[in-house]
Design a protein around this nucleic acid. Structure first.
Lengths: 204, 204
DNA sequence: TGAATTATGTATCGATCAACACAGAAAAGA
DNA sequence: TCTTTTCTGTGTTGATCGATACATAATTCA
């Protein structure tokens, strides 16, 4: 295959993981190329040869993030037996992931590029697309709960999905402020307190 | 007084407002001096003479923001007759303010400098202090509700304040994603749905 | 009117930004 | 061995970053 030429002397996946951590901690604009190359242990030309550009590297890093850091949260959403347990697991796993001290707090997808001009570059659009996918996943799971009779027929799955997604976004900022796991669980408890009322049948 | 020397030819407050809008839209790091001077209608030396530095300008801009854009939200919190109405007004006014299309979406205090190193510079610390003050204001209002018998004695005002503050933070990101006023109100409805359960007496 | 004081506009500072030119090094194919 | 291909390290590109030097203009005080 493509085994001709001098072989790469660094682990591409390991370097991508390091880049992800830098973007995660500093955001897209805040992460400089020198910071990235230092963390990845390679020189600038090697980075460009392997990943193309800062923008392309970020897109790959967010994809890597989704498949590693973010995977279990969204897996639990689908696998929990009831919609209520699905949402609770979703939020509890979020609380656990966001407060871990051995990595940046909060979510790369949520915090990675909040101030980009949507018109300029694909980064902002890509993150928005991923956030929209998350909203859809929540909504689908809630609709399943309606279909299975767990939730009333007039339950507004879209509005509820918006609410729980917004709570998760807020937890990213809370985590960035140094909130402990327990503090994040207080927010989870608040969000789950809404469940009883929403599932009671008088959803707006 | 200090009326000696050549008088300033621009309105300092108007220039500060323009600077606030730039920081609001682009964040601290994302707002460049050239962008700021262009929006403020002055040259770089005038900016430094009047405000000191980019950092000092940001601190003044956030203070200005608190006293103008953010004032009515927190005023309503204290003036509403019941704690429940206070929280509801607080969230509804937030939804209204964050979705207005004639200004940047979301909150400057929340989104202004999420990726700063806390050690480096006073910006991050200042915003965190302001967010902590907001949490305290919410908690105090809820504790008033407990004292007045509106809420049960075992009501966890701190945890509830954390929850509502987190919801508000999430709404900033939701607004940045282009959410409409109605979409933000869906989140408000979700948060208020939690009220019934939390105020019921079985708060954790 | 003249000295002191403060603001303005032009032009620029060194540092850093993202990105790349180039030559040498290390592999495969002939 | 020799050509081709690909990667690596050094050094640098033009642009932009935040921040100023400097001369000039406009005001107050004496």
């Amino acid at each position: 295959m493509s085994e001709r030429g001098r072989p790469r002397t660094f682990d591409r996946t390991a370097a991508l993981r390091r880049a992800m951590q830098v973007f995660w901690a500093r955001g897209y604009e805040g992460a400089s190329m020198s910071e990235l190359t230092a963390a990845m242990g390679i020189n600038s030309p090697s980075l460009y040869a392997a990943f193309g550009s800062k923008e392309a590297l970020f897109l790959e890093a967010t994809d890597f993030y989704s498949h590693t850091e973010g995977a279990d949260i969204w897996l639990a959403l689908d696998e929990a037996p009831t919609a209520r347990q699905a949402i609770e697991q979703f939020l509890c796993l979020t609380a656990k992931a966001y407060a871990q001290s051995d990595r940046p707090q909060g979510c790369l997808i949520t915090l990675g590029a909040l101030h980009q001009d949507s018109s300029r570059g694909a980064i902002c659009d890509d993150l928005r697309r991923r956030r929209a996918e998350n909203h859809t996943a929540l909504q689908k799971r809630l609709e399943r709960g309606v279909a299975q009779g767990e939730l009333p027929a007039n339950f507004d799955a879209c509005a509820a999905a918006t609410f729980f997604a917004t709570v998760q976004h807020g937890m990213s900022i809370q985590a960035r402020d140094g909130a402990s796991h327990d503090a994040l669980l207080a927010t989870v408890a608040g969000a789950m307190a809404a469940w009883q009322t929403m599932a009671g049948g008088n959803a707006a």
